[in-house]
Design a protein around this nucleic acid. Sequence first.
RNA 1: CGGAGCGUAGCUCAGCCUGGUAGAGCACUUGCUUUGGGAGCAAGACGUCGCAGGUUCAAUUCCUGUCGCUCCGACCA
Length: 569
Amino acid sequence: MRWTQALIPTLKESPADAEIVSHKLLLRAGLIRKLSGGLYTFLPLGFRALKKVERIVREEMDRAGALEVLMPALQPPEIWQQSGRYETASDVFFKVRDRSKKEWILGPTHEEVITTMVAGELNSYRQLPKNFYQIQTKFRDEIRPRFGLMRAKEFIMKDAYSFDVSDDAAQKSYQKMYDAYTRIFQRCGLKAIPVEADTGVMGGKYSHEFMVPADTGENEVVYCDDCNYAANIEKSTSRHIMHADLGKNDSALEKFATPGVVTIDALTKAPYGVAADRQIKTLVYIVENKPVLILLRGDHQLNEAKLVGTLGTATYRAAEAEEIFAALKAHPGSLGAIGVQGIPVYADEVLRHVTGMTTGANEDGFHVRNVSIDRDIQVKQWADLRLTQAGESCSHCGKPLKIRRAIEVGHVFKLGTKYSVALGANFSDEAQKSQPAVMGCYGIGVTRTLQAIIEQSNDKDGIIWPLSVAPYQVCMTPLNVANDGIVMKLAEQIYSELTVRGVDVILDDRDERPGVKFKDADLIGFPIRLAIGEKSLAKGEVEIKFRGGELTFVKAEEAVAKILELVKK
RNA sequence: CGGAGCGUAGCUCAGCCUGGUAGAGCACUUGCUUUGGGAGCAAGACGUCGCAGGUUCAAUUCCUGUCGCUCCGACCA
């Protein structure tokens, strides 16, 4: 490609609506342009990089034995009603109506479609296992699209769905995808780490997310350097050894006045001096229209993902002030679970057997000390409910846990039979018995992966593309483009030789000053730059430079061979 | 949806408080000079000041509404 024939609108300044470095660079390097919030056009250079990521994904999926298909983006709502997700997933739907006012859904994901297809086409255990995938645009009415391609209303996803005869077989399919994902991200030049994950609205029981560490990521990953434990904070656990540390306190309950004290923090101060980890925090939630109490240690936070798992429903919300008063006859800040009747109490594991705690008295302006939870509070269910905090002990090896932010680029799930049962994806086993297929589903955010690569690989001058996904691998920079000049003659000759040999090369034939060309090449981040200028050419040499690396000089006649060698690596 | 901020030239922004002539830099066009890390000079072109209503002799500026965008929270590849 000749630069003058391409469209590469680089920007010197960052557009005002880009916040994070990868978004700024996508715009500045002329890879994408915004149409509207969460909707982007891929310009020629951005589209080339995207296609390269897609190609890697496709090659690895094929290699793992998955079969590529293409499903409709437009879906009938009936299959969502059948799977039971029409209500639970409706917040993310973009809905459209046809001329007869019938409603359709722009697909946010395709479990329902693929399972419907499989229900019709796969009948025997002899046909399993099967894994189908597609690379396609998904539509999600995100609450808040942001950071360019990171969270968009419309994005390209690779989604795959496996069908197996048994849990054991499904586990093998899962492992294949897990391994394929590891290779995909490696080939994209990404450091992506698999972490244990919550299954969320997708349903299912077992899952890993592939996370790219980045301060701008929207997820938090809890990890242990010593034993390699890593999990999404929503899923993560830590050791809970509270009661053993504290000794026993059998003293009788004692109510005391705490006028104006409505926060954990205020109670830690004089004259009360109750450490946060000796307080019991009482939260009131409305779960399926009924109040529920949740008890946590004072210095802990509720992990709502775990709450959903414990309650077995996602229909919950924090209670309003009036609802709290109606239930407990006190306001937030003075709440407690002692003697509470008729309201189920869920308590965090950390509080098991604790004594000598302080909690609200359900009377504004009063707290109660010497609380022994086993003696004084009727707990309906103990569960791991708290958000893991950095420094807590790893539940596997006991070493301190760390937390860091990350971008989720892939997610693999074991789904079980939820969808196959609901949508009739059954097969006959050897005994001619009808069985639901055991499913797995596997997603990669292709457009997000592209941006994650940039987020992870850049410097002050711009993007640093890995060779595998760069829009062009080689950028030729002749410093004088006069047609009859020695520089351009050589450039044309090398360019045509490289092109003939299939090298992915762009020739910067613009009549610009060298500084402009170098700045643009660095900004876009072509991995290899071949500069041809009179200075070096006087010594019969051209210049090869890796993005971010050292300048090296090569004899002009060896340039093609050298580039071919570098590109092959 | 709750909270915060911003809409003026293709881009980055000033002007608005204190109403009266639409501005800078970059980009663009032409010419000359320059030519190894975002050149200089000169000339030029480019605006429904987001939209609607109100106040006023007069609104980019004040008021109301509305739409859009960005950030923080819930959602997720």
